[in-house]
Design a binder for these strands. Structure first.
Lengths: 336, 336
DNA sequence: GTGAAAGCGCTAACAG
DNA sequence: CTGTTAGCGCTTTCAC
């Protein structure tokens, strides 16, 4: 019940607090015998240093924050797994914050991190790329930040991302090759990095194929499931409905399955469907879902690895942009 | 770059540190005018108190830990969502630890929480129910703990769980009603709470139906995907293979889909499959998966809500066992 | 209504 | 090799 601290250990051993402190950290100033006595008692009493006392002195908390827009999304889940594993194996603790796609919430969270709670931050932005004042404030405090997937280039920071433009180009081209003439694209947002890059890849692919995109083909999510469902439903049920749909997050693909069932739209007969997704069940669905899959786990690990280098070897550290490749998995939902 | 702290604010305002501190916390000792001046400057400079300094004084970190066995499991994902939301809305921060089903890792994590890092803990046990010394050590420090899903009754603590015994009984009975004669059960472990409860429900249902279970019907996971896959594959491909399989975690159901495809075993024709699962794609699979679904999100919220009551109103708090109900969703994988 | 001072547990500079 | 001391940022008596 009563806390075990250095004072307690010191008094039990008839030593001073600082001697005990040094002994525990295996200082060369301390005799082997004293070290042994101290270590033994510490183990016996299950001494664990109070992390906050150390933080206060050293301005290091051995804690990092992860701020993500969403968690019901396998991309972020695998990322969390990678982040957590990499952090813990380097002795870091992970504070997790989910913004639920709400920029105000993100701002509040980020503001709270300004005073020593964490040593660094891995963030996948919820806020639009032109609304990053809150990040700037953190940056100015000198806090290392790694941007992850939904990024901004406003700061000289490490960025972990995938080849969104190329993947979207490749995906769209693939849909064209599979015979689609009217390909719609459902984007996460027109104001976040991945939304913009993917849209551009999509547009370029159409252009290169000599297809002039209809305005109605571009569906912009409001990150509100009900609204998004309606948006997609309208698009798929109007005259001149698209014969191909390329969605940017897996939720939208799932919504599309439901809509197609409701309206008897055959996939891939009437509509070919391709989605960015890390769904472990993609190959088990009816029809199986063709995906562009990002290396989420590896990205998570890389993000933390970069962050920890920035924290522990600041001299040797250079911010860089790491771009990994997604893979296109062709399955039934896009079959000819 | 330079940190904003009370000292800084005090010197800028020509006030003492303690006055500033009190003003910020709206103490009645301070004049309205002073409060206003202090608040204004604090806001302007984006002052955020150093959380660790406060922790050190008050023995409160406004942080809780969540320790879970796995994250690639929709049950835990929805739980995290509930936990995170409930915690944050009460001003708590959430440290997340994933043990990857490794008891040693759990022990290490739990030991690290012994000295003030967190105010309380929500844990879904990885360790067997008869191996909880590490939890006991925490408990003895007076740290409030909420057990979640994979529980132990060794301590007088709050428990959030579902009606595992009844659900397994109901699920098994349902499979019998659907015509299964030889129902296998794949359990997570024979030494954790949900494994035991679910197995007992399964056994009782067989017994009540006058079915004598074959020893080979009970498959015990080792939490090693390769081993588990082999275990299930062997069971499903031997002579006298079961005609019904009831799995305790969604991963095993997914493995079963793969195995059945590989061996041309028709679901539900040759094998009816039912699983505990929170898969959002259960209804979209081929065949759609019949599930027993736990209220994961609500359980997460409830866990945190109980924990925070224990932390903030210890006098009024009584540990209790909250048992929620799972629902059986009948889909194609168990059709007659 | 405001300020001085002690102290939370720890580290680190400095004595001895 | 061991101990004394100051101080990280904050809260909390206790003086004034």
């Amino acid at each position: 019940m009563e806390p075990i601290n250095l004072k307690k250990l010191a008094s039990l051993l008839h030593l001073s607090i600082s001697t005990v402190s040094k002994a525990l950290r295996d200082s060369h100033e301390i005799s082997a015998d004293t070290k042994r006595r101290v270590m033994e008692l510490a183990r016996e009493l299950n001494y664990e240093p109070n992390p906050y006392a150390g933080s206060l002195r050293k301005y290091k908390s051995k804690t990092i924050a992860v701020v993500l827009p969403d968690i019901i999304n396998n991309f972020f889940i695998f990322a969390i797994k990678g982040i957590q594993e990499a952090a813990y194996s380097s002795g870091y603790h992970v504070l997790i914050y989910i913004t639920n796609e709400n920029p105000d919430y993100e701002k509040e969270v980020v503001r709270q991190l300004t005073n020593g709670r964490v040593d660094g931050l891995v963030i996948s932005l919820t806020s639009p790329i032109d609304d990053t004042e809150h990040i700037k404030a953190l940056r100015e405090k000198g806090l290392p930040i790694v941007f992850f997937d939904r990024i901004t280039k406003d700061f000289d920071n490490t960025i972990i991302t995938t080849n969104n433009y190329e993947s979207a180009y490749k995906g769209t081209t693939y849909l064209i090759r599979q015979g689609c003439k009217r390909i719609a694209h459902c984007q996460v947002s027109d104001r976040i990095s991945i939304g913009i890059d993917r849209l551009n890849g999509y547009k370029k692919a159409l252009e290169d194929a000599g297809i002039v995109p209809d305005h109605d083909w571009i569906l912009t999510s409001r990150k509100d499931p009900a609204y998004d469902a309606q948006l997609i439903e309208k698009a798929l049920t109007r005259k001149d409905a698209p014969d191909g749909l390329f969605t940017s997050v897996e939720t939208h693909a799932l919504i599309t399955y439901d809509i197609c069932r409701k309206h008897g739209i055959d996939i891939p007969g009437k509509l070919k469907l391709l989605s960015f997704s890390n769904l472990p069940t993609a190959h088990l669905m009816k029809p199986s879902l063709s995906t562009i899959t990002q290396p989420a786990y590896e990205m998570g690990r890389a993000a933390v690895s970069q962050l920890i280098t920035a924290l522990e070897k600041p001299a040797r550290f250079q911010p860089e942009t790491i771009q990994m490749d997604s893979v296109l998995m062709e399955r039934e939902s896009t079959a000819r």
